[in-house]
Design a protein around this nucleic acid. Sequence first.
DNA 1: ATTCTTGTTGCATC
DNA 2: AGATGCAACAAGAA
Length: 271
Amino acid sequence: MPELAEVEFFRRRWDVARGKTVKAVYLNPRARDNRGLPIAKIKKVLLGQKFLASQAAAKQMAFYFTNHLWLGIHLGMTGELAVGPAEREPKPHEHLVLKMSNGQELIFIDPRQFGRVLFYQGQGVPEWWAKIAPPILSRAFTVQVVADFLKRHGRAPIKAVLLMQERFPGIGNWMADEVLWRAGFHPQARAGNFGPQAILRLHRTLRQVCRDALKVIGKDWSDPPSHWLFNHRWSDGGKCPASRVLLKRAPVGGRTTCWSPAKQKLGAERR
DNA sequence: ATTCTTGTTGCATC
DNA sequence: AGATGCAACAAGAA
């Protein structure tokens, strides 16, 4: 499920072991998440190092250890981070496990294996971390930046554009739908048709949904309130929490998309 | 049995 | 050249 706020939630889970030392490393060499990793080297250099800090950005996390060591994790479609006691019954698809000095294990589970584990050792910041786009909640995410990006992808449906991580880091399928629903834009609206007022509104709504999601899900994984589209989007016969009309569902930009035909009409973007 | 999936990439096509 | 769309990746749920 992991989009912006869920990623932050999982980061916090592992962060309980901050300050502890790595006592053992397990990396499944056959897991697709671990492809390309120097597994033997990671095991060797990580052992005995202290977990110093963690950070989430977009759909990625970075865990930083002494000796300039970085572990990056992308949760893909089905990944999650867990913390468990060492004597637990291991579950299937545990692709990375760090045994920590407090007796806890930090576990990365990912059945579908669309996720990714990354590694870096050295001064400075790894390329895979540095290249993540500036956060939607940062000052760099200006209205102008959004306007330029929509123009550049003018022929694509706005739904597909909102999913582009190079400009909307952390936005995934449900967040994109939530934004468009709240702002009142049809997911099929062409990005190039958005007028100045509509762009302003889209920009503001993007920031608001990110803030709200982090407040609700990012902190302790509470379910969002039922007046969000989130709670109704996957059920057949789901109704728009604002207008009570039957929600529509269809693929847009290659992804299942849910919208309220009452609230989101083509043309509203042209202002 | 079949179809679906909260993500990303690589490649074909426009 | 740059933008767009789609299949592929893999496993489990409905």
